[in-house]
Structures are given as structure tokens and as C-alpha cells.
Design a protein around this nucleic acid. Structure first.
Lengths: 329, 329
DNA sequence: TTGAAAGCGCTACCAC
DNA sequence: GTGGTAGCGCTTTCAA
């Protein structure tokens, strides 16, 4: 690989001049510039990012920390982030944390050691020390609040919408499934649904599901129908759980949506591919990723941030696990 | 952030000595070592990877290039790669190429500029110049052959298995769907199925689907049933297409698997979540990622590679879109 | 067993 | 306008 020295030699100028034309900093004669550019071209020169990063103490890398890229909600986020930062010349260094604090810390360390200019993290531990004293800008993604900049979906409103929509469609004995207790997002949507249900003229009961894993959800779904056979509407804690419920219902020949309505949460890509396609509360994952990236970019530029907690809107996607709503609404 | 100089000062030794204890290179007195380690501890020192990378001309980063992380097949691959390299102290710099050569080149450039020690790429252009003259070790993933090391699934055998299994289960008028022509993997599985079908005592016809996108697949599926209503077995080009076919069949109240069997390809996570769950040919994506990482690590260490084209086995996953096979087999 | 110093490739300051 | 050069933080001779 050619270095700046080679270019300088070829163009018969000093490295300082080469640096100037490359970075468009300082004065340089038009003619010299041409010579340099020509040399760059001929030698197929590409600046060494590492050297640059060492001197400037910052790279063009951004760290992205996700719980598990294998979970279908996250690829969308990742893609949103990547698309946005790529435009601005940044690249991603990426890791899965498995919601494990040790691993997170390890990654944050790595990020710092590699001079990343910022990090985007979907952590459950936004209050961990490494996030506090950190010398690099951080934005939290899919995680509500803390005191740092963050972008997340309006889970509470999502829960409200889910409950309203299912009630509007005349479910009368509703099961509200509660997600893992350690996830704020899960709590939010649960509480939102509770807001509405508790005020409405319907029976409902709550069922806890401590994970979002499909096999466990399947088991809980089976229990659900055994214990509460009269249920005619289910608000699931997310689309995976909703899928398990749908499975179980279909297995039991329960007619969906005629006799049982189901609403999920997230709108992961495969929800549309189910049969019948799943009605759900959509989180705009891709856009959330983009938004987080934009926020980070702003923070990096020390721009004034008017909204440091960006709450993204959530929408009801009525597919075929819910009935048609009455028109008079 | 503390530097090696700070540590040296605190431990009252030279930076050379600190470097020696950190890298366990050269002799250093036990006592001095203790002093250094203590200083490291106290200052919470972590070596600057960038400086190290500049001098050594290699980082601890590995480049991963995937067409689109949003495509459900790839997260598994990515995870496999990450888990494997993480163990060995490497981290990932990651990009989506969208199967676009320009973008790939751009990323390869970035990788090189950042001193990655190797790259794993799922490219459609393994023969592009940037992959040839490259100064960094490369292994291709999910891409068959070229002359470089690669790991991929045995698509041809997969196609054969799919055809055999559907025939064994008594489909008599089979539709074989052919995937995008520019993808070698798609061609392989198609040819494999053709091998078997053409020798078997069944009617079959071929239908081309030029993309793996769901909406288009849906349309093709609709056409399929209109043009060939007699079809009683479908070998889809992948699970997305199979899902579209399944949808359409269900919509038309065709009984699956009684009157129509469907076999997909890939075994993406959601195939199991469909209703009925999809029978398919499984590619061990996670293991493929791991294997690719192992291969790369070997190449990096200049180890002797006995298998530079690692072909991973493919298996039939009989779920509920195929019937039970006869026992006498 | 240790330290001094060169040098990885680049940027930015200062002098001309 | 341009060039010389210090220095980013590290590793690795080489000499002591």
C-alpha cells in the first residue's frame, strides 16, 4: 500500500502539501494540486485510517452494540443505523452483548481502544458506570430514557392502542400478556394496555411470560388456552409470543379472528408472512436506527439537541388476526 | 485515557519494559513486572489499539461483508462469525453490500484502511479484482468456490434431497421453482433437484422466480396456481418463496400437506413459526459462519489448509408441509 | 534485565 | 504557497 510519502515523492512535493490537498486545508497552488491528485491516482493511494486516527485521536468508526442480531427485531435497527452513518463516511464496529453486562463492558472498552467517535447501544444497563464517565458520545437505542440521548418507541402508547383496537373490535374477555420484567420496553407496553383495559367495560386477565423465546412462549400459550378457554382476545407481549399464541389457537381449531383476536407488538418482518398475517403494533425499527444515528451525529458535532429523548410513533397494523372495526368511530 | 507513558512513569520503568510485560515478550524481572501490573491496575490502563495497529500494521479487526443483514438468512451467519472470532480476541467491522459491487469495493477499501487482519465476504463477485490482489486474507461465505477459501452449503445435494423427499412422499405433478439466475447457490439447488426429477417417474415443470422478495414471490405463487392447478408438490427456491406459496395455497383452501406438499430451502428461523410449520432443506447458517471464521483464522496463521472449500451438509427438516414418508425406505 | 530511540503514516504547527 | 518536523501511543531493535 502506497503511503503519503510515496505520493509526495511522485508529485515532487512534501508530505505536508499532500496532506493539505487531501484534506483541503490551507493554501495550495492549483497546479501543485493537480500534480498531487495525479500522483494519488497513479499510485492508487488511499490514506491510512489508522495513522490518521492515531494522530487525531478519533477514527471514522462508530460502535454498535445490540443484544442479539439473531433476534428479528434488531437487523432492522442495525440497517437503519448503518445506512445513515454510511452516508456520512462512518463505518460500524459491531457486537452482540446477549444482554450481558460483562460483554457490554468489554465491547465498550474495545470501542474506546479503537477510537470510535461514538456508540449506539441497545443496552439494558444504561446506568452502568461505563456509560456514565465515558469519553465518547453515546446514544441509547430502543431503550427509554436514562439521562442520556436516546431513541425509543412509544411503548406505553402502543399498549394503549393495542388495547383500544381490540376492544373496539369487540373482544370481551381479554388476555394481556406481560413480557420480561427486566425490560422497560415490555413494561411500558404492558402498562399502556393496562391503562385502557382497567377503564374499559371488559373482563381481562394478565399472564406473565418471562422470556420472548418461542418454545417457552408456546408452552405458555398452551397453558393460556387450558386455563382461560373463554379468552376471545389476546394482547401479546411481542410478535414472537403472538406467533406462538396463533399457533396454539390454530392447533386447537379456534377461529382467528372470528372467535379470537390476537395483537402482537413490534411488527417484525415475518409477522406479515404468517397465516393469517398478524395484526400488530408496529415499531418503526429501521427509522429508529436512522434516528439514533442522526442523533449521535448531532451529539458528535456538538450541535444543540432540542430533543434528546426521541420518542418514535407507534402504529396499529390491522392485518388478519383482528376483525374489521366498526365504521362509526 | 492513560497511556503507556503514564504507566511507565508510575511504575518507574521505561515504556519498553511496560510493553514487555504487557505483551509477555522478552525478559523482565518478576518484581518489576508486579510493579508494572500494579500501575496498570491503578491507572485503569488499556492499550491503545490504534497505536498498536499502526506500528504492527494489523489490527484486531475482521471485516464482515454481507448482502443485507435484514434478510433473515444472514443474521445467523453473522452471529456464527462473531462468536468464533470474539473468542480469539477479534472484533467485527461490518457492512451491507446490497449485492452492489461499488459498495463492496468501498467496504474492502475501508477494511484495508483500517488494517483489518482478514475479511469474510458473502459476495456475488468473488472474482472482482479487489478480491484477487488483496493483501488481506479473505474467505468467502455462502458462496461456492472461486479459487479462494470458502464455506458454503451443499446446495446441489440440497436440491436432490428436496426432490427425493417430495417424490418419496408421493407428489406426482411437481413444480420446481428456480431462483435468481445470478446466484450460484440458487442454481445449485435447482440443478440438484433437476437431477432427481428428470430421472424420476413424475411430471414436473419449472417456474422461474427472479427474486427472493416476498411480494414478488406472492405474485408468482398466484400465477403458479392459476397456470398449473394440478400441482401437488412444490420445491421452492427458498423459504421466503415457500412461504408465499404456502400463503397462496391456504388462501385457496388447498389442503397442505394432504393435497399439496411444499418444501423450502434455508430453514430460516421463521419457517418453524409458520402454520403449518414449513418443511425445508436446512443450511446450517450459524455453523457456516463459525466455520468461515475458523477458516479465516487458519489462513491468517498461515496454517496448512487441507480443506479450502468447506462444504457444509444440508439436511431435510420434515415439518408439516410434507406428509409422512412411507416406512419402507 | 532494562532503557533509549527509531519508526509505523498521518496532521498541524511554524518558519520561510 | 510550501516544506520541515514534532508528535499521536505503541513495539522492537540495539546497546548497555
Amino acid at each position: 500500500m502506497a503511503t503519503i510519502k510515496d505520493v509526495a515523492l511522485a508529485a515532487k512535493v512534501s508530505v505536508a502539501t499532500v496532506s493539505r490537498v487531501l484534506n483541503e486545508s490551507g493554501y495550495v497552488h492549483e497546479e501543485t494540486k493537480t500534480r498531487v491528485l495525479k500522483a494519488v491516482e497513479e499510485l492508487n493511494y488511499h490514506p491510512n485510517e489508522v495513522a490518521r486516527s492515531l494522530y487525531k485521536r478519533e477514527s471514522r468508526l462508530i460502535g454498535l452494540l445490540l443484544p442479539d442480531i439473531t433476534n428479528p427485531f434488531f437487523p432492522q435497527l442495525a440497517r437503519g443505523v448503518e445506512d445513515e452513518i454510511h452516508q456520512h463516511g462512518f463505518r460500524l464496529i459491531f457486537g452482540n452483548s446477549d444482554e450481558d453486562l460483562e460483554k457490554e463492558l468489554d465491547y465498550l472498552q474495545t470501542f474506546k481502544q479503537n477510537h470510535v467517535v461514538g456508540v449506539i447501544s441497545a443496552t439494558n444497563y444504561p446506568d452502568a458506570p461505563n456509560y456514565k464517565d465515558s469519553s465518547m458520545p453515546i446514544v441509547f437505542l430502543d431503550r427509554t430514557g436514562a439521562h442520556a440521548p436516546s431513541v425509543f418507541a412509544d411503548g406505553r402508547e402502543g399498549g394503549r392502542i393495542a388495547a383500544s383496537e381490540i376492544i373496539k373490535r369487540h373482544s370481551k374477555r381479554i388476555t394481556l400478556m406481560k413480557g420480561p420484567g427486566h425490560l422497560q420496553t415490555a413494561k411500558d407496553r404492558f402498562n399502556g394496555a393496562l391503562d385502557i383495559l382497567s377503564k374499559a367495560d371488559v373482563d381481562f386477565h394478565v399472564m406473565a411470560t418471562e422470556t420472548f423465546s418461542f418454545p417457552e412462549a408456546q408452552q405458555r400459550a398452551a397453558e393460556l388456552f387450558s386455563f382461560y378457554p373463554g379468552t376471545d382476545g389476546i394482547i401479546a407481549s411481542n410478535d414472537i409470543v403472538a406467533t406462538a399464541v396463533l399457533h396454539e389457537a390454530l392447533k386447537r381449531k379456534i377461529k382467528v379472528p372470528e372467535d379470537l383476536q390476537i395483537i402482537g407488538f413490534d411488527d417484525i418482518p415475518q409477522s406479515e408472512l404468517l397465516f393469517p398475517p398478524l395484526s400488530t403494533i408496529r415499531q418503526p425499527a429501521y427509522e429508529m436506527g436512522k434516528e439514533a444515528a442522526k442523533l449521535l451525529l448531532s451529539v458528535m458535532k456538538n450541535e444543540y439537541i432540542e430533543q434528546s429523548a426521541v420518542q418514535m410513533p407507534v402504529t396499529f397494523i390491522g392485518r388478519q388476526t383482528t376483525r374489521k372495526a366498526d365504521d362509526n368511530e
